[in-house]
Simulated scan of single mutants.
Amino acid sequence: MTEHVPDIGRPDEPAVSVLQAGVVRRRSRLADGRELFYFDDPDTTLPDHRAQDLRASGPRPPTATMRHDVLTGEWITFATARQNRAFMPPADQDPLAPQSATNPSEIPSRYDVAVFENKSPAFGPAAEAGAGAHAGDGDPLFRERPAAGRCEVVCFSPEHEGSFASLSPTRARTVIEAWADRTTALSQIPSVEQVFIFENRGAEIGVTLPHPHGQIYSYPFITPRTRSLMTALEREGPDLFERVIDAERRGPRVVLETEHWVSFVPYAARWPIELHLLPKRHVPDFALASAAERDDLAVAYLRILKAVDRLYGTPTPYIAAWHQAPVRKARDTVRLHLQLTSPRRSADKLKYLAGSEAAMNAWVADVSPEETARRLRAVID
């Protein structure tokens, strides 16, 4: 049976909206009912009309199931439909490129930036949690619940290869506007507790599509990492982020500082390359970042990413994780911030998570944070 998937947009919301920085958002749908949004650059050359998705539509996969680990308190999602997702297709079969006569891709029209519901999501398509957790197999130790929520794909460019670092400042600003718009919309889903924006870059990270894109996960719970952060804020004080930023700005690990943002290698960096980027004032998520902060970020973020690639002269694999405050908790204390991490510890060596890190979450670092910051400052433009 096909699940009912509610439209999270407002019924009175226009099909075309002008956002900040002159970005235009156009609402559409794919053949199977999934929502699709085009975000046009302010200087776009695209026509107003967008083609319809005329592919034959099959049923969407059922919503995944989450199981509760009673020993850790964590929820583990079992999204078995993802086993069959695309894996390194050739350029002429790129599922994130605009559709053509020979490529029945996910996006029916030419675009600048496009966002659509993931065909094989970890969370959703059902957006409501239903009756909540219940005992799987009748045993109270084995609780499970639907993985309600939503997962979206953010296509940075129609090009087959690249990453956020390959974008122009104008296009980067369009993507940031899309992040803010989708954070606002996804935060309105009743079952969603946290919205997470990220980009995986490089085959070493496990990327299965070379197309420049990122993802948005809307979790029906607050993630373990954020819960740990909230505990630290309760222990150290609600102004913890402000104090950390002030202390790092006086130290040797700052890589870049602009009018609204500061980037540094953290004092206790775990990875060979690890960079944090934070707004100077308290901002809980992209939706509440000002236009000036978004404009400044488009340039600052590109400078950071290009510096990371200059360390070794070739593209560096990374995970760019944008941590946002939960939707309904800790909004006054958890600050929006980027945590960019890479396992690359030299030109031809990677750090693998072995026994201590993988089993015990007890990290042993290979490179000092001060050395990483020094090297990044030397190559940032």
Rank of each mutant, 00 (worst) to 15 (best):
R50H: 11
L256G: 00
F116A: 04
G313H: 07
L297C: 02
L297D: 01
Y301H: 14
G58W: 04
H260S: 13
A321S: 12
Q188Y: 11
F156G: 01
R344C: 09
R143A: 14
L311C: 02
P190N: 07
A347P: 02
R344K: 10
L96P: 01
T314H: 13
G138K: 02
S290W: 03
R55Q: 14
W261R: 04
A178T: 01
P224K: 15
K351M: 10
V255L: 02
V364C: 10
A180V: 00
R201I: 06
T77N: 06
E234A: 15
H260Y: 13
S100N: 05
R335T: 14
A178P: 00
S57I: 00
L209V: 06
F198H: 03
F264E: 00
S368Y: 08
D32R: 08
A126Q: 15
D181N: 12
T231A: 14
L141Q: 13
F241P: 15
T2V: 12
Y267V: 11
T65Q: 08
D239G: 04
P210I: 05
P108K: 03
A269V: 05
A269H: 05
A126M: 15
T45Y: 04
A131H: 14
E3T: 08
P42N: 05
R335M: 13
A133M: 10
R82S: 01
P146Y: 11
L233D: 04
R227K: 09
